[in-house]
């Protein structure tokens, strides 16, 4: 097979795949939409939360108060960010632990 043919075939395959993806997107339209909406809220929440955390450490109720978010939601995000290495637990303040951002580019998590 000539190089040209190969390229042609490749293009064709890419084209087919694009079509397939399109079909798949169509098929899963409703779940994709649901997920996209969810991600939108999550991104917004995380942005607010991480901005609030800045370089300070804070407890979940403190963060909830400062951001106006539900405290249960805050602790859920904190636990998640901790799982993915974005946040570390700090000292205890009363009955609550404090949390702090890990100093690294946080873009992965919010991206």
């Amino acid at each position: 097979m000539s190089d040209k043919n190969k390229k042609k075939n490749k293009n064709k395959a890419e084209q087919e795949r694009k079509e397939d993806m399109k079909r798949l997107r169509e098929e899963r339209k409703s779940s994709i939409q649901r997920a996209a909406t969810m991600v939108k809220t999550q991104r917004k929440d995380l942005k607010v939360l991480m901005k609030q955390m800045g370089s300070e450490s804070a407890t979940a109720p403190e963060l909830a108060q400062a951001t106006g978010m539900d405290v249960a939601q805050v602790i859920w995000y904190l636990a998640t960010l901790k799982q993915y290495g974005e946040v570390v637990e700090g000292a205890k303040n009363g009955s609550y632990f404090t949390y702090k951002l890990v100093v690294k580019e946080p873009e992965e998590a919010v991206a």
Binding site: A72, I75, Y96, F97
Partner: peptide
């Protein structure tokens, strides 16, 4: 999830 026992509503021990 928390690596310790916390109350899920607000993270209190």
């Amino acid at each position: 999830p928390y690596n310790r026992v916390l109350r899920p509503s607000d993270g209190m021990e």
